[in-house]
Design a binder for these strands. Sequence first.
DNA 1: AATCCACTGGAAACCTAGGGCC
DNA 2: GGCCCTAGGTTTCCAGTGGATT
Length: 404
Amino acid sequence: MGDISNYFEGVTTVFRNKDLLQIDHVPDNERLIIGRESQLNALATGLQPAVEGQKPNNVLIYGKTGTGKSLCSKFMARQLVSAASENDVSVGVAYVDCFQDSTESQVIRSLGSTINDQEVTDETFPASGVSTSECYKRAWRVMDDLYDVVVVVLDELDKMDDPNSALMNLSRAAEAEKIQSCKLGIIGISNKPRFKDRLNERARSSLCQRDFVFPPYDANQIEKILEARDGAFKDDVLEPGVIPRAAALAAREHGDARKAIDILRTAGEMAQEEQADTVREGHVDAAQVQTERDHLIEVLAEQPPHSRYVLKSVALLDQQMDDRAVKSSDVNQLYRQICTEQYSSDPLSWRRVRDLLHELEFLEIIERKRKGAGRGEGGYMETHLLDAPEIVIDACDAIESDGR
DNA sequence: AATCCACTGGAAACCTAGGGCC
DNA sequence: GGCCCTAGGTTTCCAGTGGATT
């Protein structure tokens, strides 16, 4: 081995175990989960029967982003698997993010392929080419073949196009004798408390056997959460004010622990980049701006290019109109102009632009209100950006230049 | 309270690309 | 090879809507 490693020498690192600050990191000790004792207990009670190989209760969980819903569900599912295996009960857990897999067909495919073991069952779950009902049948066979109990975690359930049909099919699997020996339990996770209203009678009664709420964390709890993960850093790297500062910033926005952890990790990365020995409060403030931009870029990068052109038009109008409302038809006008002049591509139809605006609203990047302008003037939609226009424009441009 | 209009958003249909099964 | 499936992006058509003005 020659001296190929020079690149890594002499770079001081502030991290000891950065994994602790990844958002999907699930602690292996419940003492590291702060302030969620009653929720963990409720979850455990719901899942309890599965330890004996019985059917677990279906559970519905509400709570805003970053309140520990996914974390607790994953943690408890893992506990369940090991507790059950001591009784010789084999439990399968399928975690499905309905934001990514938003149609019934995608959900069942994703579910199937996570619990599947092709070597044993000889089943496959191709992304296309097989009907949805065939995928269900394959999933039932996999469950019967491999497991005594299967727990399906449906995260971001409110982001599903039509949750009813999938929920009905899953919850009624046993009654309809689709699966013979295997028991199936569902944990549904939703950001919106009103989600229940979108469900029909059957889906609601089966899913909502038990439901409970994850309240937002307060600044104190967020501080403890961050402290619980300070092993991510080397000793004495964090200056005293850092954690309280990060906690305060995150608590200001509806107690989002995920955001707090993001900010802390980014602050560390920034300190490291400038080869500082310690992470200071200044890094935290800079990290907050950075994470906001990063988040925007992450979301926008997955959108079709024209969605970004539309958003950019909104941002430009928002910027130049001071506090006058932005009308969708104005957005369309500017969008058409930007398309031909800046990106030299054919603008999409007016109808499609309205759809893109609708999607941007759904992604919580813009906010809209319907207005009527009066006799002979028609009605229109008032659009507002949720972030500063400069950040939005910057993020759009960053993706464009990054894209190739 | 009736009117009026541009805008809104649902529905249907089209197209392309990707793929499985017999 | 023919027939079946799904997905994503788009267009076309159109009934419905809000609220200031009459």
